[in-house]
């Protein structure tokens, strides 16, 4: 008899008792994830925002405009620092983050996110209004259960709200849209605001929607067939998503008045 006597074998037909995470709740392909926004939670920051998007949690605090000593600069300098909480695993960290174990400074993935955010946020801030000052954005990712590009899209939304909360003069609130083009057996389907990135073409676009839909941030990843028509369509989808998020953020900010 070949029975494993070291274990107590469970009866048949049982179900696991783990709680179901909300990512397993079905989301329609055209839906945007539900979000919860709260501003001004961090007392010693000039402005902050906290966002829960499904089971992803992001917090952004803005310090500034703060005066700098020493050299004279005629406009504000912006710096962005993005951190994952130490217990959170980062997307693809095995490939991008070498010398694991040593924890000092930002990892390559965190640096990449920081510079995307900086690139996207910079055109919206009226830097000339703040000579001799710095504006610092501190982003903390408290929980992450989505793909890298999707996460960055939400970080942008969260950062924009934090900038508004800090009362920094901006041209427009930057919002992002992220869609995937998934190909299964030759059938293409567009998924708005996806959770995963399995073998699909991922498109993340950040917009200034008020200013003629100017694209301030762009990142395309994934499968390698780039058809102009398809890509155009996907970018337009991102614009739609970005507009929807923008109107929700507007509604939130107006309700805070």
């Amino acid at each position: 008899m070949n029975i494993d006597r070291r274990r107590i074998i469970a009866p048949e037909g049982i179900t696991p008792i783990y709680p179901k995470t909300s990512s397993q709740q079905s989301k329609d392909d055209n839906d945007i994830k539900k979000m919860f926004i709260k501003t001004g939670l961090i007392n010693n920051a000039n402005g902050s925002s906290y966002m829960e998007i499904d089971n992803n949690i992001i917090e952004v605090s803005v310090f500034g405009p703060r005066p700098i000593r020493g050299s004279f600069i005629d406009q504000a300098s912006v710096s962005v620092e993005c951190k994952f909480l130490p217990h959170i695993s980062q997307p693809n960290e095995g490939i991008f983050n070498e010398n694991d174990g040593k924890k000092h400074g930002l990892t390559n993935i965190e640096q990449k996110i920081s510079s995307y955010v900086e690139t996207a946020i910079l055109p919206s801030i009226l830097l000339k209004k703040y000579p001799k000052s710095t504006i610092d954005l501190h982003i903390t990712i408290i929980e992450n259960n989505t793909s890298l590009l999707n996460l960055i899209g939400w970080i942008i939304n969260c950062s924009s709200i934090a900038l508004v909360d800090a009362g920094i003069e901006i041209k427009d609130i930057i919002t992002s849209g992220q869609v995937n083009l998934k190909t299964v057996d030759g059938n293409e389907s567009v998924i708005v605001d996806p959770n995963d990135n399995d073998n699909s073409l991922e498109v993340l676009v950040s917009y200034m929607n008020l200013k003629n839909d100017e694209i301030v941030g762009l990142w395309i990843e994934g499968s390698n067939d780039l058809d102009n028509e398809v890509l155009n369509g996907l970018i337009t989808k991102c614009n739609e998503m970005s507009r929807k998020i923008r109107s929700n953020i507007n509604a939130y900010l107006l309700s805070q008045q």
């Binding site: 910079l122 055109p123 100017e214 694209i215 762009l218 614009n239």
Partner: peptide, 17 residues
């Protein structure tokens, strides 16, 4: 950073072309 601004969608497509 004065003249740093956003891009038009059509320019992205023509850059790829």
């Amino acid at each position: 950073k004065d003249n740093y601004k956003g891009i038009d969608q059509s320019l992205i497509i023509s850059a790829i072309n």
